[in-house]
Amino acid sequence: MAEAKPIAGTRPLAPKPMSPHLSIYRFQINMILSIMHRVTGITNYFGSLILAIWIASAATSEQAFNTVSSYLATPLGLVILIGFTWSVMHHMLGGIRHFVWDVGWGFSKPAVKFLSWATLFGSLTLTAIIWGYALSHWGIR
């Protein structure tokens, strides 16, 4: 931490108190979920590139669209798309959880635990439903 330089002619500041963070906490599911909310937010940020490239290719030419589509349909492409979907669902449910907290609900220990696990399982369930449908649909074409 860089010390704040005292401005000339003023008292020096007292050192700010530091929280003994991270290392002293026992594992809790909600702390993982808190980190996950950031990670998924950042993932979604860069995932938007995929959507932008896809829509731009569709607006460019048949050839560009087919190229991008064929990349997305490779096993790696599908893994990335499924991961992106899960990331969006996780961030969405995490956001709803934050709204519950914003209005002042769900702060008891069991409620926090429940909301955290619900976010995790809910996001996996939604992803499974979406891709179950998408892949069966894709297969039919």
Binding site: V88, M92, I96, H98, D102, H137, W138, R141
Partner: peptide, 29 residues
């Protein structure tokens, strides 16, 4: 928060878009 709420709706539409156009040829898009 405002855009988090609107995102709930637009992401639902985005999922619908993805499901509608999964594997679709350019003509359908």
């Amino acid at each position: 928060r405002l855009t988090a709420v609107s995102n709930l709706f637009v992401v639902a539409f985005l999922v619908y878009t993805g499901l509608t156009l999964a594997g679709a040829p350019l003509g359908e898009v």
